[in-house]
Design a protein around this nucleic acid. Sequence first.
DNA 1: CGATATTGACAAGAAACGTTGTCAGATTTG
DNA 2: CAAATCTGACAACGTTTCTTGTCAATATCG
Lengths: 216, 216
Amino acid sequence: METEIRSGRRYKGVSNEQRRAERREKLVDAAIAVYGAVGYHGATVRAICAEAGLTERYFYESFENGEALLAAAFEAVMARLTEEVMTALAPLSTFDMGSIVRTALATYYGQLRANPNEARVFLVEILGVSPRMDTIYWDTIRQVSLSILRFAPDAAERADDLGLDLDLFADGLIGAVVQIALGWVRSGYAAPIDTVVETAMAILGAVNREYLSPRA
Amino acid sequence: METEIRSGRRYKGVSNEQRRAERREKLVDAAIAVYGAVGYHGATVRAICAEAGLTERYFYESFENGEALLAAAFEAVMARLTEEVMTALAPLSTFDMGSIVRTALATYYGQLRANPNEARVFLVEILGVSPRMDTIYWDTIRQVSLSILRFAPDAAERADDLGLDLDLFADGLIGAVVQIALGWVRSGYAAPIDTVVETAMAILGAVNREYLSPRA
DNA sequence: CGATATTGACAAGAAACGTTGTCAGATTTG
DNA sequence: CAAATCTGACAACGTTTCTTGTCAATATCG
C-alpha cells in the first residue's frame, strides 16, 4: 500500500534535486536579508520562510534548524568574498606585498559596501551565537591568516626570534582589518573607500615594513 | 487603608538602598558567571537568579529585562578593567609611549586571564545582541580610542595629511589588540602573557614608530 | 506584643517560537 | 483521464521563557 517510487519527478521543467537546491538558495538569500533587517537573534524561521516565499516545511527540508541556516549563510558570504578577492588578485603580475594587500583590501571593503546585509552577517551576526558557530568563525579567520602568512615565508622563524606568537600576530592583523570594516559599516560607510583602504594599509604597511619584508 | 510608609526600613542592620544595591551586585556577578558558563543567549533569568541566590522578583527590582543586566555586566567589567589599567599606569613617571602602552596591555591581558568569565562578557557575549548593546560596545571602543590618541597629539593633523581616517585608524589598533585577546582566550591562554603583550606591541609599536611618534 | 515591612519559594498567565501534521489544489506521468 | 506526486497555506502541539502574583515565614518598629 505504500508508495515505492521515491525518486523525484520533474516539475515545471526542473528536476527534483534542482528544485531543492533552488529552494535552499532562496532560503539563504532570504536569511541574509532578514538578518540584515532584524539580526540573527530577531530572525524567526517563519519570517525567513516568508521572505523566501516558501513554507516552513521546506525550511526543514534543507536545514536542521535555524543555526544551520546561519552557518550556511556565513559560508555563502565567505565563499563569495573569497572568490571576489581571488578574482581581483589573479591578474596581478607583481609579487609586491603592498600591491597584493592593497588590492585584496580594496576588494574586501568594496564588497562589504556593496552588500551591507552580507557585511552584517560576516562581521556581526556570526559572533557569540554558539560554540559551533564560534568554531566556524575561527576556522575562517585562521584560514585567512594562513593565506596572508604565505606571502611572508620566513615570518615564523622571525617571530620566534622576536619572542612573538605567530598565530596571535596574524589574529591581530586580521582584527585590525575587521575592526576597521566594522567601524566603517557602522558609520554608514561615511569615509570614501580609498580612505578606508589606505587607513588599513597604514597599519598593515607599517607592520610589513618592520617585520615581514625580506630585509632584516 | 493603604500603607503610606514607603521609605525603607532597616533590615539585618543594613538600609533599604544598601540591600537593593547588594542584590543588584549579586545579580551582576551571577550574570557574569552564568554568561561564562552558557553564554548570554543560553542564560535565563531563572538561572541567573538561582546563581545569585535570589528570587525572580528581585531581578525586576533592579533590571527591566535580561538585556539591561547584560549592559550592567558589561559596564561593570569595563569599569574594572579601566580602573586596573589606570592604577597600573599611575606610578609610571615616563611619558614614553612604548612604556605606557606596554603596561596598559600587560594589565589588560592579565585581567582577562585572571577573569575568564569577565573576558568572555567583554569580548564575546556583548556582540550582536541588539542595536542598543552595539551602541554601548561602540561607545566604549571609541572612548578607548580617544584615550589612546591623547598620547599622540598631532595624530589628527598627520592622518589628514596622509589621507587616513583617524577614527578608523584607532578602530584598527583596538581591533588588533582585541582580536589578539580573543585568540588568546580561545586558545585557553596557551601562550605566556609576555608573548601576548610583545605580539601586540609588535603591531602597535610598528605603527607608533612610523605614524605616531614625534619624528616625521 | 501587635502591626507592618521584607523575604523567599513557587504558581500561573501570557506570549513566542520551533516543529510537525493536515489538506486541498496544482502538476506531472502513464 | 486517472493516479500519484508536489506545492503552499495554515493549524496545532509542545516547550520555553518572561513576567506578575500569591502566600506563609521572618524580621523590625512602636
